[in-house]
């Protein structure tokens, strides 16, 4: 008696097996296939907010981090229609914040930058917002540079679900959404945030930074100097 084949779907023509309850992106990662993403991290519950992981599943656009895989499903990811939309989303993220890659210590280790390279984003296209977002340098060992926040909420989820601290939260709505620190003063120094927290190590961009170690990794040895972000299903970012 032969064992029945596990359920599977096709992703850009490639057969991807999946287990019970897996989403499209989880199954793709297990199979070593990259789907662009920013707010998704396999260690946390999906958030479905950045929409970078949008794919076409059976002809309908859906976030692959929240869409359950189905047997026989036909998924398209690396196609012009989807990549054009992903690029536009990236461009909007870049202009909404202040992302100065040339002097950013996260350059070369930044998922936003690496994804932009991956998707051939050659310019921001839209007008910059140039928001005024002061730094929070109050903590003795960590710096918050809100200029680079993409509202992925990974720090919020890590602090709440893993650290049990609720140090971070998203405040405001729509275009006024922004990251805040849960303290009366609004300063990180007035929370119980610690460098050992999971939240200190999940930021995919350059918001939560360990102080005084910027640029310690030479060019050529940074995460995405060695390989493009697509070469690993979920990037392990140095310095995160």
């Amino acid at each position: 008696m032969s064992k029945a084949n596990p359920p599977s779907f096709t992703l850009d023509g490639k057969t991807i097996p999946f287990g019970e309850g897996q989403t499209i992106i989880q199954a793709a990662m297990d199979a070593g296939v990259y789907i662009p993403h920013l707010c998704f991290n396999p260690e946390f519950k999906p958030h479905g907010s950045c929409k970078l992981c949008t794919v076409k599943a059976d002809g309908r656009q859906t976030a692959s981090c929240t869409q359950q895989a189905k047997d026989g499903m036909v998924v398209e990811s690396d196609i012009k229609e989807i990549n054009d939309e992903r690029r536009a989303l990236l461009q909007m993220l870049f202009v909404e914040g202040n992302h100065f890659c040339p002097s950013c210590e996260k350059s070369g280790n930044c998922q936003l930058q690496a994804t932009a390279y991956e998707l051939d984003m050659m310019s921001p296209h839209f007008d910059h917002f140039f928001p005024d977002r002061p730094l929070d340098a109050s903590h003795p060992d960590y710096l918050l540079d809100f200029n680079r926040c993409i509202l992925c909420s990974l720090c919020v989820r890590a602090s709440r679900d893993v650290d049990g601290k609720n140090v971070f939260a998203l405040s405001g709505r729509g275009i006024k959404s922004h990251l805040i620190v849960n303290a009366k003063s609004g300063h990180l120094a007035d929370t119980d945030f610690s460098g050992d927290d999971k939240a200190a190590h999940v930021c995919p961009v350059g918001v939560i930074l360990k102080k005084r170690v910027g640029f310690a990794t030479p060019i050529g040895q940074r995460s995405f100097d060695e390989q493009p972000i697509s070469a690993t299903p979920h990037p392990v970012v140095k310095g995160a």
């Binding site: 002097s103 950013c104 730094l135 710096l143 005084r212 640029f215």
Partner: peptide, 9 residues
């Protein structure tokens, strides 16, 4: 207002 280690770059 920028962190000092960013300055040389």
């Amino acid at each position: 207002g920028r962190p000092y280690w960013e300055v040389p770059v």
